[in-house]
Amino acid sequence: DEVTIHLGDKTIRVDGLDKELLEILKELARRGADEEELRKEIERWER
C-alpha cells in the first residue's frame, strides 16, 4: 500500500505504512509538523 501525505505544497509518499503510524503522521501534520519531522517519525517506526 502506498500512502501519499500532502503537506501544504509538499507531498510525501510512503510504502506500507502501519495504520497507527499513519494516524500519528496525520496528527503531526495537522499540528504543522514539517516534512523533516514526519520523516523522522517514520524512521523511528521502521526500526
Rank of each mutant, 00 (worst) to 15 (best):
D34F: 03
D9P: 02
T11I: 14
L38E: 00
R31T: 10
R39F: 10
L25Q: 00
E20F: 07
R39P: 00
K10R: 08
D9T: 03
T4Q: 11
G32C: 03
G32D: 02
D34A: 09
V3N: 15
E2H: 13
R30F: 13
G16Y: 10
L21F: 05
I24L: 09
G8K: 10
I5K: 02
E20G: 12
R47E: 15
E2K: 10
K10W: 07
G8P: 05
E20Q: 13
K26S: 05
E2F: 14
E35N: 04
R47Y: 15
L17I: 13
T4W: 12
I12W: 04
L28S: 02
A33P: 00
D18E: 09
D15F: 03
E20K: 12
W45V: 01
G8V: 12
R31M: 10
E36G: 07
E36W: 10
R31Y: 07
W45K: 00
V3D: 12
T4G: 07
T11R: 01
R13S: 14
D1K: 09
L21S: 01
E43C: 07
L7G: 04
D18M: 06
I12P: 01
E23Y: 09
K26M: 14
L21Q: 03
E46F: 11
H6G: 07
E27V: 05
E41C: 05
R31A: 15
V14K: 02
D1P: 13
I24M: 08
D9K: 02
K40F: 09
L17V: 12
D9I: 03
E27M: 06
E23S: 10
I42R: 01
V3S: 14
V3H: 11
E27N: 06
E35T: 05
W45A: 02
E35Q: 05
H6A: 09
H6R: 07
E23Q: 10
L38F: 07
E23G: 06
D9N: 09
K10P: 07
L17H: 06
E46A: 06
L7T: 06
G8M: 10
L22P: 00
L22N: 02
L25D: 00
A29Y: 07
E43S: 05
K19P: 15
R47T: 15
V3K: 08
K40W: 09
E36L: 08
W45T: 01
H6D: 13
I5T: 03
E20V: 10
L17D: 02
E23V: 09
E41K: 02
E2I: 14
V14H: 04
E27H: 03
E35A: 08
R13A: 12
W45E: 01
E23H: 07
E37Y: 06
E27P: 00
R39G: 03
E43Y: 05
G32E: 02
L22K: 06
D9V: 02
I42V: 06
E37C: 06
I5H: 04
E41D: 00
K19F: 11
R44Y: 08
L38C: 04
H6L: 14
A33E: 03
I42L: 05
L28A: 05
V14P: 05
D15W: 03
D34Y: 03
E37K: 08
T4V: 15
K40T: 08
R47I: 15
E27W: 03
V3E: 13
R39W: 13
I5P: 02
G32H: 02
E23N: 09
D34V: 05
A33V: 06
L25T: 00
D15R: 06
A29W: 08
R30P: 00
L25E: 00
R39V: 08
K40Y: 08
L17Q: 04
D18P: 15
K19L: 11
R31P: 00
V3F: 15
R39D: 02
L38T: 01
E27Q: 05
G8Y: 08
L21C: 01
K10Y: 14
E43W: 04
W45P: 00
G16H: 13
T11C: 09
I5D: 03
L17P: 02
D15K: 08
R30Q: 09
D18F: 04
E2G: 15
R47D: 14
R39N: 06
I12M: 08
K40A: 15
E43I: 05
L38D: 00
E46R: 03
G16P: 04
I42D: 00
L22E: 02
T4I: 15
R13P: 08
D15G: 06
R31Q: 14
K10A: 13
E35K: 04
E27I: 06
V14F: 15
G16A: 09
L21K: 03
L7I: 15
L25R: 00
D9M: 02
H6E: 13
K19Q: 11
R13M: 08
I42T: 01
R30G: 13
V14R: 01
G32Y: 01
E2R: 09
E41T: 12
E41Y: 09
D15Q: 11
K10D: 08
L25I: 09
E41A: 12
E35H: 06
R44V: 07
G8I: 10
E20C: 05
A29D: 03
K10V: 15
K10H: 13
A29E: 06
K10I: 15
V3Q: 15
G32W: 01
E27L: 05
I24F: 07
G16W: 09
E2Q: 13
L28Q: 02
D15V: 09
G8A: 12
L7A: 09
E46M: 09
L28H: 02
A33M: 05
K26G: 04
T11E: 12
D34T: 15
V3Y: 15
R47S: 15
I12H: 04
A29P: 00
W45I: 01
A33H: 04
R39L: 15
G16Q: 12
L7K: 02
L25M: 02
D15S: 12
G8C: 04
E23R: 09
T11K: 05
E43G: 04
L7Y: 07
K26N: 09
L21V: 02
D1L: 13
K19C: 06
A33F: 07
E36V: 12
I24Q: 05
R13W: 13
G8T: 11
D34H: 08
D9R: 01
K19E: 11
L21E: 01
K10G: 11
D34R: 07
K19G: 09
V3M: 14
G8N: 11
E20P: 04
D9S: 03
R13K: 14
I24H: 11
E23L: 11
R13E: 12
E23I: 11
E23M: 10
R44N: 11
G16M: 12
A33Q: 02
L25V: 03
G16N: 13
I12L: 10
R31W: 10
K26E: 08
V14D: 03
D9E: 07
R44A: 12
E35R: 03
E20Y: 08
L7M: 08
